[in-house]
């Protein structure tokens, strides 16, 4: 990778790191299940952008795109199933606070 490309990649890497930290912060501070899913989404988006950027700067765009398509499919499945679980938790607990999930211990 040439010096100019490396500088450009570092710019991407900086913003990806910021986005990842934002998602992780949201994941740590919140107790709401839906907000936790949103935080997971942000983390996945940061990883997606990293894969695309690495593919672009290493010249393997085809491979990175195929990986990203897989990531997106997994992301959708996670959101759909987690949304269903959140809804079910809300039905039984009347709120989406994850601390209330301790009630599910057998």
């Amino acid at each position: 990778m040439s010096g100019e490309n490396w500088q450009s990649f570092l710019t991407f890497a900086f913003f990806i790191a910021l986005m990842f930290v934002s998602g992780f912060y949201c994941l740590l501070i919140t107790r709401n299940m839906l907000r936790i899913i949103i935080a997971l989404e942000l983390l996945i988006k940061a990883v997606t952008l990293l894969v695309i950027a690495v593919g672009f700067y290493t010249g393997m765009v085809g491979l990175s795109q195929s990986l990203v398509i897989t990531i997106i499919v997994i992301e959708v499945a996670i959101v759909a199933v987690a949304g269903g679980i959140a809804l079910r938790v809300f039905r039984y607990n009347d709120n989406l606070d994850v601390r209330r999930l301790r009630n599910l211990r057998g």
Partner: peptide, 30 residues
């Protein structure tokens, strides 16, 4: 911009569209 048009179309249709619909549905059904 990074020459990943197919992945971009997936991202736009699935993440921007479908996932937003799922989130809004979940929020409205709680």
């Amino acid at each position: 911009r990074l020459n990943s048009a197919l992945a971009a179309v997936f991202e736009l249709s699935v993440c921007t569209g479908l996932i937003t619909v799922v989130f809004v549905s979940t929020i409205s059904l709680t």
